[in-house]
Amino acid sequence: MRPVLLLVWLWSLAPTAMNIKVAPAVPDPPSAPSLAHCPKTCGDVSISYPFGVGPGCFRQGFDLICDTTTKPPKLFLGNTTTQVISLFPSGTVLASIMYTIPMVPGVGTYNLSWESPGRNLNIATYNYLAFLGCGIGVYLYHPDTGDLVGHCTVKCASMASMLLVTEGGGICNGMGCCTVTFPVPFRGFRVTIVKNNETVPQPFANITIKAFLSFRPYIFSIADLLSDKINASTVGASSAAYLSTVITDNPNCAKARSDDKTRYACGSSNCENVANGGYYCTCSGSSDDGNPYILDDCKQGTQPPSTPSLFHLFAQPII
């Protein structure tokens, strides 16, 4: 081809070549050095990415607030009242979710709800909701469909009869306390409490309703029932539940890997789909004590996990 014709031909291809768009590379998960400036603890709770406190320290939707006005400081999920009790590198969160609901004369129905910030935490089915009260019916609804998925009733008898219930450690069986369980993992819950048309003996008439989410069996106490409030000092270790991290910016692992608009959370770690949408990351083999949400952090784990496995934590009967 003559030199002049060659130049003309190449020039004709230039616009086409200039219009070729190269898909941007999906950024990797952050590395440990890039998070070195981030707070590592709040009080006695260790903080692990994708959660974090402060700019540049958390994945979108996983921000935490450290309340330093208390002694010791307390850690909360975003701008909520949900307190974080423990946080594991795997992304599992032990959280305190509880409610106090005063009974108001003339009011027969009460509603409460909870949703994980960013809808990025699942309530697993080994957790349950406990309700302390008298003369009430409790109805649990699916947070997305509105379908009724659980129901329990609480009755109260005379003080003598109630004391018999608690002899030797009372179980939550509908006398002063009842529980509802989750048929599938939920990102939150909606509950309606209805006051039954029945006479409640003193001193249990019109007492405050208490509710809390837990994974451990609750041992019923009349003192808890008669209290005007509920907190960790009343129901103790029972007032906490395990929540599992879900990355929700894509519906599954395959879509997350191919999406050039969002940061793939797992990097070189394993990816697992979540039944109700999204995915989560895991380490494998002897790397279970690493953080799968930090670049190459799984490779740091060469010893058996330093924390108890989730199987041992959850292998308790739920009452």
Rank of each mutant, 00 (worst) to 15 (best):
R263M: 15
S90I: 01
S86Y: 12
T68I: 13
F76T: 03
S90F: 03
Y141C: 08
L226N: 03
V235T: 08
S306D: 13
L112S: 04
F314I: 14
D289S: 14
V235P: 00
H142S: 10
G54W: 07
P29G: 08
L6M: 13
M18I: 09
A17P: 02
F58Q: 00
T307I: 15
V180E: 08
I136F: 09
L121D: 00
N252D: 15
K71W: 13
A124T: 11
K210C: 05
P89Y: 08
V165H: 13
L87I: 02
A211H: 08
S34T: 13
N270P: 03
S96F: 05
I136V: 15
I97R: 02
K255T: 11
H312W: 12
L7N: 05
G176P: 04
V93A: 02
C152E: 01
C178G: 01
P201G: 04
E198N: 09
W11K: 10
M98F: 07
G290F: 04
P89H: 08
N111V: 06
Q202L: 08
W11R: 09
S46H: 12
S268R: 15
E167T: 06
S227V: 05
G150I: 07
D260T: 11
C38I: 06
P201F: 09
Y218H: 12
T153D: 08
V154F: 01
G106Q: 06
C156V: 04
D296S: 15
I85H: 05
R187I: 04
K74N: 09
T68F: 09
D288K: 15
S269C: 14
A205M: 13
N252S: 10
T262R: 03
E167Q: 11
G301K: 06
Y99F: 15
D44L: 14
G78T: 10
K21N: 12
N173R: 12
T109W: 01
N127I: 02
K21C: 08
G236P: 02
A232L: 11
D296I: 10
S161I: 03
L163Q: 14
A256R: 00
N120Y: 04
G137V: 09
T69R: 15
P27I: 09
Y110Q: 00
L213G: 00
S238Q: 03
D249A: 07
N19P: 04
Y293F: 15
V84M: 05
D259P: 03
S306P: 04
V53W: 05
P117R: 03
C298R: 02
P183G: 06
